[in-house]
Computed example of a mutant assay.
Amino acid sequence: MNNFIFYSPTEFVFGKETELQTGTLVKKYRGSKALIVYGGGSVIRSGLLDRVKKSLDEAHIAHIELGGVQPNPTDPKVYEGIELGRRENVDFLLPVGGGSVIDTAKAIAAGIPYQGDFWDFFTGKAIPQTALRLGVVLTIPAAGSEGSGNSVITKADGLKKLSLRTPEVLRPAFAVMNPEVTYTLPAWQTASGITDMMAHIMERYFTNTPDTEVTDRLCEGTLKAIIKEARTVIKEPYNYGARANIMWAGTVAHNGICGTGREEDWASHFMEHEMSALYDVTHGAGLAVIFPAWLTYMADHNVGKIAQFAERVWDVPASADLKAVALEGIARFKTFLHEIGMPTTFGELGIEHPDIGLLVAHLHENKGEQIGSYVRLDRQASREIYEIANR
């Protein structure tokens, strides 16, 4: 096991009607004027936005709004938020939504006090030293951004989708999590979120770091819980217990606890980022295509942990033929993805003729000549994985 620091100071306020505590929480964390960030009309139609604003009013917290954040968020909305926040002298960011909304708010929070271009943080030209505080009202369990210091934004000019990881600066002060607000999520969005959180665990699980049994079991147990509850929530969308477990799993998957003491991979996420940047696909659905292909490639190149995944998560009987065990586990994983309505090939995702050459070129231009750590992937390896996903 490697040395590690686990830092997770976010206050999670979980359960029914917890959005009514938002104003009190903003005041607790010294906010006096909040910029509410949200996406489409669902938070308006459901009444959630009104409940949040009423809570702010009752706590005497001034607030302004920035709506219209789109899935796979891009930089123009961040620039708009930075300009608005500076003009209105806000001191707190309050995203009400899922990962795209939260990631946009994080970029705004880092950009407002910065004298340069916020994109410097995403290209590595600068590291955020300070940011406005933010709290989250979560509506979509998926990205885990409510409990992480990460943000992913696409540069509209050139379609560069890059990530920023600064847990000391951009972890939310609090996350309000009411599973009831997820009841009306479309099945596709629910399943995409489930796939995303599973991928967040697997990016950490597949490691060459030895002696990580406790973290392995945390990963495996959380994955098995997600699989169980996913089957329930797809059939019974108003099942509070299933919705609650799925919502909490999304946080556990990405707040860092599943990666303690080990080297992480993240090649599959990098490969999917190029897909969603180029084709604007739903992130979780793109991961449903890429991860089985990545696993299939790894069955030939570093089979050990793939076989363990098959045995411990998918209940494949142990065998001396590790590759056969691994492939059976991958097959069961794909069956599960289909069961919850996810694609597992480019064609099923609606991309009949993907430009694999362009995907590979952008991937390695943006992320380096080699990516990942479980097996280091060069251009030929990443091309092979994209081709497996296209079969």
Results as ranks from 00 to 15, higher is better:
Pro317Val: 11
Asp378Leu: 15
Asn390Tyr: 14
Gly261Ile: 08
Leu84Val: 06
Gly81Asn: 08
Gln380Asn: 12
Thr232Phe: 14
Lys160Val: 06
Ala361Met: 15
Pro354Met: 06
Thr182Asn: 07
Lys334Val: 08
Asn150Lys: 05
Leu159Asn: 10
Thr260Gly: 08
Ile108Met: 09
Ile385Arg: 08
Ala242Cys: 08
Glu387Cys: 07
His60Leu: 02
Ala199Gln: 09
Ile257Asn: 13
Arg231Val: 12
Pro237Glu: 00
Leu49Gln: 07
Ala131Lys: 12
Asp378Trp: 11
Ser268Phe: 06
Thr282His: 12
Ala143Gln: 05
Leu377Val: 04
Ile140Phe: 14
Asp196Ser: 09
Gly40Glu: 15
Asp378Gln: 14
Thr215His: 07
Lys125Ile: 06
Glu339Ser: 15
Ile290Cys: 09
Asn302Cys: 14
Gly329Ala: 14
Thr130Asn: 02
Leu66Arg: 05
Asp300Pro: 06
Pro128Phe: 03
Asp75Ile: 05
Phe346His: 07
His283Lys: 05
Ala242Val: 12
Glu236Arg: 03
Ala34His: 00
Glu83Ala: 02
Val136Arg: 04
Leu93Phe: 10
Phe118Val: 12
Asp157Ala: 09
Lys54Ser: 00
Arg376Val: 13
Leu337Arg: 10
Glu311His: 10
Gly15Asp: 11
Phe92Met: 04
Glu19Asp: 00
Glu352Gly: 00
Ile257Lys: 11
Glu83Phe: 06
Gly68Trp: 06
Glu83His: 14
Ser42Thr: 01
Thr154Lys: 14
Gln370Leu: 15
Leu278Asp: 02
Tyr183Ile: 03
Gln21Phe: 15
Ala299Arg: 00
Tyr386Glu: 08
Arg262Trp: 15
His301Pro: 03
Pro292His: 12
Gly368Val: 02
Gln21Ala: 10
Ala175Thr: 15
Ser46Arg: 11
Phe118Ile: 08
Asn178Thr: 09
Asp157Val: 04
Ile194Gly: 07
Val69Gly: 00
Tyr79Cys: 07
Asn245Glu: 06
Glu229Gln: 15
Glu387Lys: 05
Asn208Trp: 11
Asn3Val: 07
Ala105Trp: 00
Gly15His: 05
Phe174His: 01
Ile385Glu: 13
Gly67Gln: 05
Glu272Arg: 06
Pro76Asp: 12
Thr10Arg: 03
Asn3Cys: 10
Glu365Trp: 06
Ile330Met: 13
Val316Tyr: 12
Gly135Leu: 01
Glu263Lys: 00
Leu349Pro: 02
Leu25Val: 01
Arg391Asp: 15
Pro354Phe: 03
Ile64Asp: 09
Gly261Ser: 13
Asn150Trp: 04
Thr260Cys: 13
Arg332Val: 13
